[in-house]
Computed example of a mutant assay.
Amino acid sequence: MNYAFEWGTILRAWPYLMQGLQTTLLLLVVGVVLGIALGTVLAICRMFGPRPLAALTTGYVNLFRSIPLILTIFWFYIMMPGVMRVLTGDPNLTVGPIYAALAALVLAEAAYFCEIVRAGIGSVRSGQMQACLSLGLTRWQALTNVILPQAFRNMTPSLLNQTIALLKDTSLVYVISMNDFLGAAVRIGQRDGRVVEVFIFVAVVYFVVCSAGTWLAGWLQKRLNPGKA
């Protein structure tokens, strides 16, 4: 294989790659923060809500966990402008790909975070809820002050693992031509004719970040559960 590697293209394109990396980090942070918040609400509704609400929440979770994320992103990008025009009455309203991607990632990831939060709440001994109620606390006060803090401590490694998965999933926004880290790398590689170098560089970055996150999740698991180490 006579291929002359030219790694200088990475240095020359670094400012453009940084813009893509910033977009990826934006998608990641918003997806994690809002995904956990919505997922927590869904988990509470599913576990403690009235039967119709619990059934509706279960359907939501099953729906988004059954559809490939790339299709969710694609359909949000196509349908969101039309839906927003109907809701606002503005026929000229446009929705950029960044908003479509954020909406798709948050709503899809909330389904996965819901199951993680539900498992975290289930890991807290059920007797603690009865103890809180017997002391005069409301169910909401017991959840927010006693149950959820312990649950989040127990599920921290799982949340971190799902965050790593989301980091990799953000690369799927290429389907709507967003300039994320991978999308920027593809454009640079095609422009300079150095696709191999750029793809190797991107793979190394993802590998290092995801490996560090996996190690941290394992370390937290041992730290939080020393008896199972």
Score class of each variant (00 low, 15 high):
residue 221 Q to M: 14
residue 209 V to Q: 04
residue 21 L to E: 07
residue 85 R to L: 05
residue 44 I to C: 07
residue 146 V to T: 08
residue 179 N to T: 13
residue 91 P to C: 04
residue 24 T to Y: 03
residue 136 G to A: 03
residue 62 N to I: 08
residue 158 S to G: 13
residue 54 A to F: 06
residue 28 L to K: 02
residue 166 L to N: 02
residue 3 Y to W: 06
residue 133 L to A: 02
residue 187 R to M: 07
residue 199 F to G: 13
residue 211 S to T: 11
residue 146 V to Q: 06
residue 105 L to E: 03
residue 43 A to E: 01
residue 72 T to L: 05
residue 51 R to T: 09
residue 123 S to K: 12
residue 145 N to L: 13
residue 100 A to G: 07
residue 7 W to C: 00
residue 64 F to L: 15
residue 2 N to A: 04
residue 8 G to C: 06
residue 47 M to Q: 13
residue 77 Y to G: 00
residue 81 P to M: 12
residue 96 G to A: 04
residue 51 R to V: 08
residue 48 F to A: 12
residue 109 E to W: 03
residue 178 M to L: 12
residue 19 Q to A: 10
residue 60 Y to A: 05
residue 136 G to H: 05
residue 100 A to E: 07
residue 140 W to H: 05
residue 223 R to W: 10
residue 156 T to L: 15
residue 207 F to Q: 07
residue 222 K to E: 14
residue 64 F to K: 03
residue 19 Q to L: 04
residue 3 Y to C: 07
residue 168 K to M: 10
residue 229 A to E: 15
residue 12 R to Y: 02
residue 25 L to Y: 01
residue 181 F to D: 04
residue 189 G to E: 00
residue 222 K to S: 15
residue 156 T to P: 05
residue 124 V to E: 14
residue 94 T to D: 04
residue 171 S to M: 02
residue 219 W to L: 12
residue 26 L to K: 05
residue 34 L to N: 00
residue 210 C to Y: 10
residue 168 K to P: 11
residue 42 L to W: 01
residue 206 Y to A: 08
residue 4 A to R: 15
residue 114 C to N: 10
residue 193 G to P: 01
residue 167 L to H: 01
residue 183 G to K: 08
residue 163 T to S: 13
residue 142 A to F: 14
residue 157 P to C: 10
residue 46 R to I: 04
residue 207 F to T: 14
residue 184 A to L: 06
residue 132 C to F: 09
residue 133 L to G: 06
residue 44 I to S: 05
residue 127 G to I: 11
residue 122 G to V: 11
residue 119 A to C: 06
residue 177 S to C: 10
residue 19 Q to H: 10
residue 88 T to P: 06
residue 157 P to Y: 01
residue 169 D to A: 15
residue 183 G to S: 11
residue 167 L to G: 02
residue 74 F to N: 11
residue 68 P to D: 12
residue 70 I to K: 03
residue 188 I to E: 05
residue 190 Q to Y: 09
residue 206 Y to Q: 13
residue 217 A to Q: 10
residue 140 W to C: 05
residue 144 T to N: 15
residue 12 R to F: 05
residue 166 L to Y: 06
residue 40 T to D: 11
residue 32 V to N: 00
residue 79 M to R: 08
residue 45 C to P: 02
residue 154 N to E: 13
residue 137 L to D: 00
residue 102 L to H: 02
residue 44 I to T: 06
residue 17 L to D: 04
residue 176 I to S: 13
residue 171 S to I: 02
residue 74 F to E: 02
residue 3 Y to Q: 05
residue 145 N to F: 09
residue 229 A to R: 07
residue 223 R to L: 12
residue 151 A to T: 06
residue 142 A to H: 12
residue 23 T to V: 15
residue 115 E to Y: 01
residue 190 Q to G: 09
residue 91 P to W: 03
residue 117 V to A: 09
residue 204 V to N: 07
residue 156 T to W: 13
residue 98 I to N: 02
residue 192 D to M: 03
residue 122 G to E: 11
residue 107 L to S: 12
residue 164 I to R: 07
residue 171 S to A: 14
residue 131 A to R: 11
residue 44 I to N: 00
residue 205 V to F: 07
residue 208 V to Y: 08
residue 194 R to W: 03
residue 208 V to W: 10
residue 56 L to R: 14
residue 53 L to M: 08
